[in-house]
Structure formats: structure tokens, C-alpha cells
Amino acid sequence: MLHLINESPFESKSLDDCLKYAAKGSPILLFEDAIYGAMAGTSLEEKMKGILADHDIYVLKEDLAMRGVDQLIDGMKEVDCTGFVGLVEEHKTASW
């Protein structure tokens, strides 16, 4: 299952809700405002590193670029929209 998160983790519980149900190893894609969760140097960095121990986290490049975010937490994987489609080929999706 690919978990799609589009809301800022500073504002929304979507990521936390998703993590209650997500199986270990299931990938997560951060896009739209959720990309701030991947940014280095925020108060969420330690929490996000903890999540990276159990899940691959992908971040949508186009949404990062649009928001001027280029410093990511180590281990975050950037994908473009084509990569997003590729992830959906491999997994069913849950939009939180």
C-alpha cells in the first residue's frame, strides 16, 4: 500500500493517522503541503527520521521546487510525477 499524504504535518493529523494503520515497510509519498515534512532542520526532523526507519518516504520534486525547499532530511527519496505514477503501478494507494 502506498500512502499518499498531501497536508503539512505541522497542520494536520493525516500523517499520524496513516502511521497508525500503515504496515511496516509500506511506502509513503509526501506531496503538496506535506513536503514540508521532508525538509531538514525543522522540529519534525527527529520524528521523520523515526518514520524512515520503518518506511520508505518519497517526496514529489515538483512540489518541493515550487515551494523552494531543497534541503531534505537524509534518506528522503525525491520522485517526479513520472516516479509517482511508477509507485502507483507497484502499489494500491490510500489518500489520507
Binding site: 515538483e62 517526479d80 513520472t82 502507483v88
Partner: peptide, 9 residues
């Protein structure tokens, strides 16, 4: 954007 990328693939 997703739909366009899916078509392109």
C-alpha cells in the same frame, strides 16, 4: 499532472 504523467507512461 498525475494523469498526464500516467498517459505519457
Amino acid at each position: 499532472q498525475f494523469t498526464k504523467a500516467a498517459l505519457a507512461k
